[in-house]
């Protein structure tokens, strides 16, 4: 049997098999499951990118943020933003640590490590305060973000944070990250 015959024979078999397949055994590309999402269905979701897309209207300053922080954040993160490692709490230190990343004891904080100011807004709005996440208004989030950035000496105390100004804040460790260079070729042989 030549190769051509073999192929022809196989094709004929496949054809026969296809004919024998019940009509309902078909691969779909669209199933029609799910319902089209209206804008209202998606309104409660958000994700804020470094370019500021997704930031809501509103604004805040460090002065207002100091009050928000005292009421909602200081119990876990400390009155001086120094963190609180106590049992049952364990809030991260938020400021300090600049210049330590290459040392024997790197201190990673919003000030020393976080590359984007928008991440702080996204995370606070999303997941803070820890015991009642998502409970702050957008103005409160802008305010407390302004307060943390101001205490970290990244913005001036009087600067207003809003959808226009926040993405422009240059974080100290903005250039501190590289893409994953793995696989580490030295480990192959």
């Amino acid at each position: 049997m030549s190769t051509r015959d073999l192929i022809a024979g196989t094709a004929a078999l496949c054809l026969a098999a296809a004919c024998a397949l019940p009509a309902h055994a078909q691969v779909q590309t669209h199933y029609g499951f799910g319902t089209a999402a209206a804008p209202a269905d998606l309104a409660k979701y958000f994700a804020i990118a470094p370019d500021g897309s997704g930031l809501p209207p509103g604004s805040g300053t460090a002065a207002e943020g100091a009050k928000v922080y005292a009421e909602n954040c200081s119990a876990c993160h400390g009155s001086q933003l120094q963190g609180n490692p106590a049992k049952g709490i364990g809030g991260d230190k938020l400021i300090g640590g600049r210049g330590t990343l290459a040392s024997a004891n790197p201190v990673k904080t919003v000030e020393s490590y976080w590359p984007y100011s928008t991440t702080l807004f996204d995370y606070v709005k999303r997941a803070m305060p820890f015991s009642s996440p998502g409970s702050l208004t957008d103005d409160q989030v802008y305010s407390v973000v302004a307060y943390v950035l101001s205490q970290a000496h990244i913005i001036k105390p009087a600067e207003t944070m809003n959808a226009r100004t926040l993405p422009r804040v240059k974080m100290p460790n903005r250039n501190g990250f590289i893409p994953d260079p793995r696989p580490e070729l030295a480990l192959y042989r």
């Binding site: 990343l101 290459a102 040392s103 790197p106 990673k108 919003v110 490590y113 976080w114 590359p115 984007y116 991440t119 501190g176 990250f177 590289i178 893409p179 994953d180 260079p181 793995r182």
Partner: peptide, 15 residues
């Protein structure tokens, strides 16, 4: 960014 990034000896982190 702040977590699940791997800080190297030179102070730069892999992301």
């Amino acid at each position: 960014t702040s977590k699940y990034t791997d800080l190297l000896g030179n102070g730069i982190a892999r992301q």
